[in-house]
Amino acid sequence: MNLFRLCGDLSHVISIVLLLLKIRATRSCVGISLKTQALYLLVFVTRYLDLFVTFISLYNSLMKVLFIATSSYVLYLMLTKYRQTYDKDHDTFRIQFLVGFAIVLALLTPHRYTMLEVLWTFSLWLESVAILPQLFMLQTTGECENLTSHYIFALGLYRALYAVNWVYRYLFEPDYWQPVTWVAGILQTALYGDFFYYYVMSKRRGKKLKLPT
């Protein structure tokens, strides 16, 4: 465990806390993509199946349980208590393409053809594109309230910190070699590029995030 990875994990946790805060504070899930949230739950469930077979550390196991639990809870809130506020008409991204993309790459790029490895690879590719429905929704509505933009920023930051962690591990851990993780992770971070730019600009002007349409 290095500092970049720890900070990456923490910003991931913070992003989920921000999302829950947003839902509570505004008592609504306006501007949140249900599709992205459902994809994240699928990502966590398929990736963390190894909870039952491998033990890495207490920290690792607890975080996995935390991610599955919180993303289930968000989805539950969106589907029950705040269902009325879900902006279905703007959440129109076709996720079949994303799932298809992840399935194809999961079948082409696993390190070994075992169930767990293929599902793990699937989860990496799916995570790399799972934010797209959310970014697309943001683009079509043009504006989002502060907590939502902080949420997306924290998510992007988590991946950017992980990328730095990979460079660090590559340099200092001679046997560490995870090409699929790296490519999928860099793709994921790159998708936030545009968003980062507008986020920083809106912070500098002290205004709400507004994207060009």
Binding site: D9, M63, H111, E173, D175, Y176, T181
Partner: peptide, 10 residues
Amino acid sequence: DTLHEVHDEL
């Protein structure tokens, strides 16, 4: 085996 299969990251 190699560290390929050690998925110690989240």
